[in-house]
Simulated assay, not measured.
Amino acid sequence: MKLRPPWLRVFVVGFVLWVASVVVTAWTSNSNLVPTVVLLGSFLVPVTFVVWAYAHGRSRDVTVERMFVAFIVGGVLGVLGASLLESWLVRPSVVMYVLVGLIEEAVKLAALIFVARRAARDKVRDGVVLGATVGFGFASFESAGYAFNALFTTHGLSLTQLVETEVLRGILTPVGHGLWTAIAGGVLFGARGRLTLPVLLTYLGVSLLHALWDSMSAIAIAITLVLTGRPWQFAELRIGMVPDVSPWQVHVYTVLHWAGLVLNSLIALVWLAVILARGRRRDVSYQ
Rank of each mutant, 00 (worst) to 15 (best):
A106I: 00
R121A: 10
V128C: 04
L112E: 03
I103P: 03
L109F: 14
R117F: 09
R118H: 15
E105P: 01
G101Q: 01
L112H: 07
K108H: 05
L102K: 00
L112Y: 07
I113S: 14
I103R: 01
G127S: 09
V107G: 00
V115Y: 10
G101T: 03
A116Q: 06
E105V: 04
G101W: 01
L109I: 06
E104C: 11
E105I: 01
E105Q: 00
I103Y: 01
I113G: 15
A120L: 05
A119S: 15
I113P: 07
A106M: 08
E104S: 09
A116P: 08
F114W: 13
D122T: 13
A120I: 06
I103F: 00
F114Y: 14
V124F: 12
L112I: 06
A116R: 02
E104N: 11
V115S: 06
A119M: 15
V124D: 11
G127H: 07
A120T: 09
R121K: 12
D122K: 10
V124M: 11
E104L: 03
L112V: 04
R121T: 02
F114K: 00
A111C: 07
E104W: 11
L109E: 03
V107K: 03
E105D: 01
G127C: 07
D126A: 14
V100Q: 07
A106R: 04
L112T: 00
E104D: 13
A119F: 13
D126R: 06
A119N: 14
A120F: 09
K123D: 14
